[in-house]
């Protein structure tokens, strides 16, 4: 890199984070390259569009949200399109990350006890690589949820094409899947922001500090920096 760029305050880490991932730049590590972040935020934003147009249809308690889009009738028209966009983004995300999210046998414990241990800060982190088991479980369940929401959502979009029993089942599947997904999203947002400072940065700027990597993902840290050599 030219010294001129350095002199004018060139942000090397952010520049590298456009294309590179898992690289150390000064005191920072690039955790999510630009494409990862764009895909993630496309999923997130289409999810919120679905949430805001869906909540007022779910219950009149949130009826006021319908006004954001011009009323409940507009929500009924928009929600399916947002839903399809959400699914396509989710599918892209699934393909994009599936290689990194392969679960080891040992990580299956995250479905239950280890997740709880993690929340109690009683989980041994030593073997945690770039993603912990909980993140991987969330990765798979959120894709499954997007599939369930798509399938049941198509029935709700074109109700006249399906028999009554299927329509009622679809309403229930959509409802239950949405609630379970929203509960996990609440924890996803919480864990990625207030609960673990420094994490949100990984999805905005794309980088984390070395200390963050060492504390939360020690195995990943060792892979990138060697066994305490640096």
């Amino acid at each position: 890199m030219s010294s001129v760029k350095r002199q004018i305050g060139f942000d090397e880490a952010a520049f590298d984070a456009r294309t590179a991932e898992n690289v150390v730049v000064g005191g920072e590590i690039v955790r999510h390259r630009l494409s990862s972040r764009v895909i993630h935020w496309t999923v997130a934003n289409t999810f919120f569009l679905c949430l805001l147009t869906g909540l007022p249809i779910w219950t009149p308690v949130f009826g006021w949200l319908g006004n954001l889009f011009g009323g409940l009738s507009v929500c009924r028209i928009l929600h399916p399109y947002f839903g399809v966009a959400f699914f396509l983004a989710s599918l892209t995300m699934f393909v994009h990350w599936s290689r990194e999210m392969k679960m080891t046998r040992e990580e299956r414990g995250w479905v239950g006890p280890r997740l709880l241990a993690y929340l109690r800060d009683a989980e041994n982190h030593e073997k945690i690589g770039k993603y912990n088991g909980g993140q991987k479980v969330f990765f798979y369940t959120s894709f499954l949820a997007s599939l369930g929401l798509l399938a049941s959502g198509i029935v709700g979009w074109f109700p006249l094409s399906f028999p009554q029993g299927v329509r009622i089942a679809a309403i229930i599947v959509h409802d239950v899947t949405f609630v379970l997904f929203l509960v996990s999203i609440v924890f996803h947002i919480y864990l990625a922001t207030t609960a673990e400072p420094g994490t949100f940065n990984a999805m905005t700027r794309g980088t984390v500090s070395k200390a963050w990597a060492r504390i939360h993902h020690p195995k990943w840290y060792r892979e990138l920096l060697g066994n305490g050599k640096r």
Binding site: G27, L119, R120, D121, T194, A195, E196, P197, G198, N201, S209, K210, A211, W212, R214, I215, H216, L225, G228, R230
Partner: peptide
């Protein structure tokens, strides 16, 4: 109840690390 995870740095800290986890 639990506060921030990573608020206390368990170390050992690398010599070239600067700043905090956040």
């Amino acid at each position: 109840y639990h506060g921030n995870k990573g608020h206390v740095d368990p170390g050992p800290r690398d010599p070239d690390e600067t700043g905090t986890a956040a």
